[in-house]
């Protein structure tokens, strides 16, 4: 059996059924656009604008991926169509990679809105593109897998939305976007280091020429560890909660 057909078909179905729906396209465009404009209005110089770019991109990816995935999986689980997927002759790992693929692509495209706006307004001359693109991809992957973990824990769509906010809002304030981690109270600082977004934001900062806390290599490694860990943990929970 050609499993590639099955996996591509799941990805294609999700993109058509969820991500390409007008409300989601507008959410994917308007949300990052609004964030960008909000910060642009506050920026007085081109340097300011470049400095805020990592934050806007990170938030756009985080909100785009976690909301969509958590809601779509919970919705399909509730209406039983997820069972149809689980009956397909593909492993649960492959199935979930196909299922999360749409959200990852959606998250990456979300990040492109502020990035393109940044290019248009500043030209972004001093950008380290490989680091920037690597960071965007890995933030999208970790945020999507965080959404997957939430989806596995939620029974209802509203629960998924509530859980998403429970994770997202503290992350925004603790990942070093608005307040540098070193300036956070000493008791809270360890929490920052268990958040994947911290390392993604650090990479984005390095990519736009700012100073990072950790080395690029360590940030990438930690993001990969988070990606693998979150995905593995979610699959384990699925097997335990849904198949037992």
């Amino acid at each position: 059996m050609n499993k590639g057909i099955a996996l591509l078909s799941i990805l294609n179905k999700d993109i058509r059924n969820y991500y390409l729906k007008p409300p989601n396209i507008s959410w994917g465009m308007i949300f990052p656009l609004a964030w960008t404009l909000m910060f642009v209005l506050r920026s007085e110089t081109e340097v300011d604008l470049i400095e805020i770019l990592p934050g806007v991109m990170a938030l756009s990816i985080l909100f785009g991926t976690t909301s969509m995935l958590a809601v779509t999986i919970t919705f399909e689980k509730k209406q039983k169509s997820f069972e149809r997927l689980m009956l397909a002759p593909v492993s649960l790992y492959s199935l979930m990679l196909a299922k999360t693929g749409g959200a990852i692509i959606f998250g990456i495209l979300n990040a492109m809105v502020p990035l393109l706006l940044g290019i248009a307004l500043t030209g972004l001359r001093a950008i380290n593109w490989p680091v920037l693109m690597g960071a965007i991809i890995l933030i999208a992957v970790t945020s999507t897998f965080l959404g997957l973990m939430i989806a596995v824990a939620a029974k209802e769509v509203f629960e998924a939305q509530t859980f998403s906010n429970f994770f997202r809002f503290p992350m925004i304030f603790l990942c070093g976007l608005f307040i540098p981690i070193q300036e956070l109270p000493a008791l809270i600082q360890p929490i920052s280091y268990v958040l994947p977004l911290t390392y993604g934001v650090d990479l984005l900062k390095v990519a736009v020429g700012a100073e990072g806390i950790l080395s690029v290599f360590l940030n990438f490694t930690l993001l990969l560890v988070f990606s693998f860990g979150l995905f593995r943990y979610s699959i384990h929970r699925m097997e335990r909660n849904w198949m037992n």
Partner: peptide, 24 residues
């Protein structure tokens, strides 16, 4: 209980299910 996709048409549901089994 039915486990097909409510928003998708009858033929799209069938072809999607076929694709899950690797059908071209």
């Amino acid at each position: 209980e039915s486990n097909l996709y409510p928003e998708m048409s009858g033929i799209d549901n069938l072809t999607f299910c076929g694709s899950l089994y690797g059908m071209r």
